[in-house]
Design a protein around this nucleic acid. Structure first.
Lengths: 254, 254
DNA sequence: GTCAAGACTTTGTCTTGACATATTGACGTG
DNA sequence: CACGTCAATATGTCAAGACAAAGTCTTGAC
C-alpha cells in the first residue's frame, strides 16, 4: 500500500454518465470504462465486480451494462467467463486494420503526412479496373497517382481508380486531403473493403520515386472499397517501402 | 418473371429453428439467414422485411431477432438504416485476418498442407524473445523451425518460440498437426494476437529453403499470441514466398 | 407545380423480469 | 483421503414493452 500509486478501492466511483446527452448510455459507460483501464485505475488482471452490481451502481439496466462490457470484450480489453467474472486483459489495443487512409494513419502515429500528386487523369478502365469497379471495360474513370511522404520522406506510391460521377478530385485538393477524406466529404460512406497484402521487389521506376535501390523489398496492398449498398467506390494498388512501413494490427478471437 | 430462376416470394418460410437445441436461438437464426444469403434466396441488394415482422414469423422476440441481424451486420453481410430497413450487401465475406495457423488456412483453401520440421530445440531466450514472451532473458524456451508446404511446394519458413512448461512439442507431432492445434489441445485458449506484416528480400539461406532466388520478395509476419488472461503463449517470425502467398481480408466499418 | 408539414415506417435505445448454464469451492460420504 | 454432490456466484439467453430518432412518403397549401 504505497501512498504514491494508490488504486482507489472503488474505480466505479469515478465514472459519471449523463442521461441528457444524446450519446447512448451504453457507449458512455463503455468509454468511461475504457478510460479507467487506460489510466490504470482498472489495472491489467484486475477483476470487475459483477455486472448486476455495476449496473446498479451506475444506475443503468443490466442489458445496457452488458452491452458496454461486450463492446470492450470485442475490442480485446476485457475477458468474460461464465460463472467466473470479467477481467481486464490489456490496457491498449493496436486496433485491427482499419478503413483509414494512410493520411489518417500517419497523423495518428505522430508523423507529418505529405502528398505529391504525380498525375490526376481520366482514363479508360482496363479489364482489371473495370472488373474491380464493376463497370464495363473502357468506361472512363479517374486515375490518381500519388507519392506519399511522412516527415518529408517517401513512404509509398499509390495508384487509385474511381468512378467519375462519384467525386471531384484535383491535384490541389489531393495535396491537402487524403483521398478517403474527399470521398467522405462527397457524402459517400465507405463501409467494406477487400484487401490483399503481398510483397514484391522495386522496379527501377518505383525505386527512383521512393528513394530505394532497384530490387529493394516493397510491401504491396491492393484494395477495393465498397459503400454501404455494396457499390464499388475505389480500387487502388499501393506499394510501400518495407524499410519504412509495415502493417500492425491486433486480432481478437470472438 | 422467368420461370427458371424463381425466387420464392417468402424466403423466411425456409427458416426453421429448434428450440430444444442447445445452440442459442439468435445463433440459429443468424446461421439460417446467412445460408439464405449465400444460397441467393436473399440476393444481394434485396430488402428484408422489418425486424418486428420477422421476429413474429420466426416465433422469437425482437431482441433475439435483432441480435441475429446484428451478427450478420458485424460480418458485413447486411446493412441497416434507421427508418429505411435492412438490406443484403454481399453474399460472401473474405473474413478478416483470423487467429488461425497456416495449416487451417491452407486446408480451407483446398490446398494440402505439409510440414517439414527443421529443428525443435530448447534454447535460451534472447532479448527480443524474452521481451515478447515476458520472461527473464536467457530463460529456456522451445524453439521450433518449420518449412511449410502447400501441395508439396514450399510456402513459408516459420520460427516459433514458446514457454517450455506450456505444451509438449516434438518433430513427429508437428509434422502432423499445426502448432496452434497442439496449443489448443493442451487446453490453452489463444484469444489475442499482435501482428506486424512487412516485406523483405530473401537471404541465401531463405532462398535455398524456399526454392526462390536470393533477393526474391518475401512477405514477413511476426506475431505474439496471448491467452485469455493476457499471458504470452507464442512468439513467431515467419517469411512467406510472395510469389505463392498473400494475405486477403475483408474489412468492415462498424 | 413546388415545397413544406406531418403521418408513417423502421431501426435504435433502454427497462424490468425470468430462467439457464458454467465454474468454483465447501461439504459430506464411502 | 478421494470422490461426488450441492450450493453460491457469475455470466448467457430470452421475452415483452415503451419510447426516441431517422428516413420516406403523402398530403395539402400556395
Amino acid at each position: 500500500m504505497e501512498p504514491s500509486a494508490t488504486t482507489p478501492a472503488d474505480p466505479l466511483a469515478l465514472v459519471s454518465i449523463d442521461r441528457r446527452s444524446p450519446v447512448p448510455l451504453y457507449f458512455q459507460v463503455a468509454t468511461e470504462l475504457q478510460r479507467l483501464i487506460e489510466d490504470d485505475a482498472l489495472p491489467t488482471g484486475s477483476r470487475l465486480t459483477n455486472e448486476i452490481e455495476m449496473a446498479d451502481r451506475l444506475g443503468v439496466s443490466r442489458p445496457t451494462m452488458r452491452r458496454s462490457i461486450q463492446y470492450l470484450v470485442d475490442r480485446g480489453l476485457l475477458v468474460r467467463k461464465r460463472g467466473v467474472g470479467t477481467q481486464v486483459v490489456r490496457a491498449q489495443v493496436n486496433r485491427t486494420l482499419e478503413l483509414t487512409s494512410l493520411h489518417d494513419d500517419l497523423e495518428r502515429a505522430g508523423r507529418k503526412p505529405g502528398t505529391r500528386v504525380i498525375s490526376v487523369d481520366q482514363v479508360a478502365a482496363d479489364a482489371v479496373v473495370a472488373a474491380a469497379l464493376e463497370l464495363a471495360e473502357s468506361t472512363v474513370v479517374w486515375h490518381v497517382r500519388r507519392l506519399r511522404l511522412a516527415d518529408g520522406e517517401p513512404i509509398a506510391v499509390m495508384s487509385n481508380y474511381l468512378p467519375v460521377p462519384l467525386v471531384e478530385v484535383s491535384a490541389p485538393l489531393l495535396e491537402e486531403h487524403g483521398l478517403y477524406e474527399l470521398i467522405r466529404a462527397a457524402g459517400v460512406r465507405i463501409r467494406i473493403a477487400d484487401q490483399t497484402i503481398g510483397a514484391t521487389t522495386a522496379t527501377t521506376g518505383q525505386a527512383r520515386l521512393l528513394g530505394e535501390r532497384r530490387g529493394a523489398a516493397l510491401l504491396t496492398m491492393s484494395r477495393t472499397a465498397y459503400d454501404d449498398v455494396g457499390k464499388p467506390i475505389e480500387y487502388g494498388t499501393h506499394v510501400y517501402r518495407a524499410s519504412r512501413y509495415s502493417f500492425s494490427l491486433t486480432l481478437v478471437e470472438r
